[in-house]
């Protein structure tokens, strides 16, 4: 994946190997979030009513909006890979820029969503929350932790997009060597994948 290094002189390029490495990294992420889902499952099993009431507090509209735009951003990054493979650099940049823009919008939505909750006094260890009982405390605890870690991944994704965008500008990523773009794309789909499960588990509890 890298070019020359001081002590290892052999330059070997292995896109397939790089992708395998990325997939292995994705597996670590899946298990990391997997454990959060496991915690969620245990506590929801123990506090079904509190979780339902907690879920009804969340804004389904904002949640759905974020789901849809995240799906669109996944599609645009996938399309930008197609564009790169076809050598259409400008198109690739536009599509990547769109993805980047949507990622920022997602975080802005999140900001408002969290802000509203915090205004209500619903945040970890707040008096309001503790009064609502154990189940609700756990629900919102998990809500903040899980969507927070997810948002952190979005933030990292934004960083990666900026990096890849620059690499395309200077032709480091090009028609024949685009594995970085592919791997960042894979990362972004992972972020989407996690959200696909977060969304019904928090916003659509009935």
């Amino acid at each position: 994946m890298e070019k020359i290094t001081e002590h290892t002189a052999h330059v070997h390029r292995d896109d397939e190997g790089d992708k395998l490495g990325m997939w292995l990294f994705i597996f670590t992420e899946l298990l990391l979030f997997g454990m959060l889902f496991l915690i969620y499952a245990v506590y929801r099993y123990k506090n079904p009513v509190a979780f339902q009431l907690g879920g009804e507090e969340l804004d389904v509209f904002l949640g759905t909006l974020n789901t849809v735009i995240l799906l669109i951003s996944s599609a645009t990054v996938a399309m930008s890979i197609t564009a790169m493979q076809k050598g259409e650099k400008t198109k690739a940049l536009i599509l990547l820029g769109t993805t980047l823009f949507i990622a920022v919008v997602f975080l802005i939505n999140k900001w408002f969503e969290w802000g509203a909750k915090i205004d209500y006094g619903l945040y970890p260890n707040s008096e309001n929350l503790l009064e609502l009982g154990h189940g609700t405390t756990l629900f919102f605890g998990l809500y903040y932790v899980m969507s927070g870690i997810h948002a952190l991944h979005i933030l990292i994704g934004i960083g990666l997009f900026v990096f890849v965008y620059r690499q395309i500008m200077v032709n480091k990523i090009n028609k024949t060597d685009y594995v970085w773009l592919e791997n960042v794309g894979l990362y972004w789909h992972l972020v989407d994948l996690i959200w696909i499960f977060l969304f019904p588990l928090f916003y659509l509890i009935h």
């Binding site: 292995d14 896109d15 799906l71 599609a75 996938a78 890979i81 493979q85």
Partner: peptide, 25 residues
């Protein structure tokens, strides 16, 4: 050894996938 033949997905197929996902949502 690395440049195996790559499958290039078309824009249309990505678009169809996206619509499917939104409908499922």
């Amino acid at each position: 050894m690395s440049q195996e033949k790559q499958h290039i997905s078309s824009y249309t197929s990505h678009f169809v996938v996206l619509i499917t996902l939104i409908i499922l949502t």
